[in-house]
Nucleic acid binder design. Structure first.
Lengths: 380, 380
DNA sequence: CAACGCTATTAACGCGAGTTAATAAGTGTG
DNA sequence: CACACTTATTAACTCGCGTTAATAGCGTTG
């Protein structure tokens, strides 16, 4: 006979009735005691007996049954248009997972796709109507005026589904939004380089026919400019490395910096890249040309990807507070669901932190401070 | 007044009773008709009326209520010890998501962590005992004899929770396992290079004090050897590029290939890398040394990461059937839960496919065939 | 000592569904 | 016309739990 775990057999689960008879009380008593209902007093001895019986029998309340009565699903839904294989996405839902679990809630994957247009909002609505989820955390695009984002928002509002946007720009002031402070990100990265004495601080950004694509990139750029200005400097075209349009990846950074070097522009002494991918590409291109990092060129990246700490030299990087964002989003949403949320819509901007490593050329003193090791088996 | 969506208000949901009165029948009739129960015949006119009323009122059955009666949670749990920010993880749960949705099931995140030791199996068990999930898909490590994996399996079996392992090696024959055919992966990659006329085909693997770390790497290596042998060749030490121990990433491949080149070994004409990360690192190191790809060195990677199609030259790569793995795992698990699974434990090995691009130097004819474009906003 | 008030507990109902045994209506047979 | 036999429908029960109004016990007070 096979040992394979089949359904169907299932030893009968212990219910609150079982606890009741074991403790010699009524089922109501069990429910009231175990839920610590206020305004009801109980004999301490009875409480003890109930709790003891519950523990002894290994009683676990059945959540769906509770849901029927309380009309809550005890779970939140997640929809995401972020790159599903990205560290950014991973860190965010790790935070969400921690927060939902702490609240005794479940986290249900409603729809995950690399592009917003591919997301099927209907299944999310359906989950809500079925009573399986009580609200939705949405990880959408920061592209301004994105039609898909607008459509999702309108649908959720129309169905009266509580929701929170995470790093998803919405021009509507009534929406709860939890976001990275991308201005501050650009600012602290640039400030770090300026504080190290650099005066020719360049930036590596994604080129997009003259304008920046996403709100987050725009804000980081503004932070960069602000830090420069504060130091009495101005941003210059010949200190700006622009990549090709399209996805952000290592190779685009690599190619862009090669083009930059061939253009004959004088080398900046420091460079802030709005992505670790770009920073990495720049680093490889620099090595190829014999440019020393951080000697000839100091580099600060953004997002603190795994590769950042493992590169040689290791990469100084701005880390987004994504776990925190996930947690805050979930906690806010849970309050909204219970009707305990703030009366005003929340617009929260959470600051980033800097992980100082070798590539920015800070002294050995600081080098350890922000560092952290992430090891893995890496064997899927 | 704020427009923020608060809980509490919730327009009353339409229930099966509402449908019943609207259709002028009893609630039982509604239930029987809508669930298409076999063995019960109904007047076609009645059926029509019920369906019409249900549609008109926008009736959606309440899943938790159904759960109470049927004793099923209509959801599967996911635990994963894979790198949460990896493409591999993403592709797998995309497949799972598709399959669960098709079955009307939910997918609940039980625990996700980068390392197996960090996974809290208790919360998963708890979810099962609470009646929220009916089974578990486990994405664990392929490291043989991994104590965490063993512990999880024993716990799940002890609690009689139906489960399926995906790419997680278990030495126990009674466990359902869905796995990538990694032997075949190494074989087709090597065969591809041999078919292009190469005779000096090397391999880039992760060094680990003489032995290979994970089962998947070992199998890929065996596939490589098998293809060589079939062609009358033998694996040679001086054609093997070994990286340092630790996480698989671009820089380890880069460093390893630089060391290899400095060792004075004669250059292989083709190289199979057991990871796209390694392949990418090799490519950057090669560029640095002026080695032309694929002219002087043809390269095939593994895993078909995003960067593979975007590198220049683009990277030929072996793609794991991860979506398929996810789907198969879910479908098998659903059958087990319904007691309809095969009587024997399932040990499924799904073959990989080759994405032929520029780096292997195949003719333009094949070059397009396996290619696919993945674009994204990349703006989190 | 009856009336009152308080504490501790429970019976009874409801949530929204699925399931089954029983009923009512219709059809055909002897 | 009474009988069995379908066919169509429903009343009644069940699942596991939360909630509330009602009850029993008991000490206090006028």
């Amino acid at each position: 006979m096979s040992n394979v775990s089949q359904g169907g057999f299932k030893r009968r689960k212990v219910t609150s009735s079982d606890v009741a008879v074991a403790a010699g009380v009524s089922r109501s008593t069990v429910s009231l005691v175990l839920n610590r209902v206020e305004g009801v007093t109980f004999n301490p001895e009875t409480v003890r007996r109930v709790q003891e019986a519950a523990k002894r029998l290994g009683y676990v309340p059945n959540v769906p049954a509770r849901s029927v009565m309380t009309r809550k699903g005890y779970a939140l839904g997640l929809i995401s248009a972020w790159e599903p294989g990205s560290t950014l996405f991973a860190r965010t839902f790790q935070g969400m997972l921690a927060a939902t679990r702490a609240a005794g809630y479940g986290l249900t994957l409603c729809d995950i796709a690399g592009r917003a247009e591919q997301i099927n909002i209907d299944s999310t609505v359906s989950f809500y109507q079925q009573g399986r989820i009580d609200g939705v955390v949405a990880l959408l695009s920061t592209l301004p005026e994105n039609p898909a984002t607008v459509r999702f928002r309108e649908t959720l509002e129309g169905e009266k589904i509580p929701f929170v946007f995470v790093n998803s720009h919405s021009d509507v002031p009534t929406v709860d939004e939890i976001r990275t402070d991308n201005f501050q990100a650009g600012y602290i990265a640039t400030k770090h380089l300026l504080d190290l004495g650099h005066r020719r601080v360049g930036i590596c950004v994604r080129g997009a026919s003259g304008r920046f694509l996403s709100r987050s990139e725009t804000e980081r750029y503004r932070g960069y400019v602000a830090a420069l200005t504060e130091a009495g400097l101005v941003p210059k075209e010949n200190l700006t490395v622009k990549t090709e349009e399209g996805p952000i990846n290592v190779d685009r950074g690599y190619q862009a910096f090669k083009v930059f070097l061939n253009s004959g522009c004088e080398l900046p002494s420091a460079l802030y890249a709005i992505s670790d991918h770009f920073a990495t590409g720049v680093l490889y291109a620099a090595k190829e040309k014999g440019i020393s990092i951080p000697g000839d060129l100091a580099i600060v990246g953004t997002d603190d990807l795994e590769l950042a700490s493992q590169l040689r030299p290791s990469l100084t990087s701005v880390r987004q507070p994504l776990q925190e964002l996930g947690e805050e989003a979930v906690n806010l949403l849970l309050k909204r669901i219970d009707g305990k949320g703030p009366s005003q819509p929340v617009k929260l901007h959470v600051p980033c932190s800097l992980r100082v490593r070798q590539s920015s050329g800070a002294g050995a003193l600081n080098a350890v401070q922000g560092d952290h090791v992430e090891s893995r088996g890496g064997d899927e």
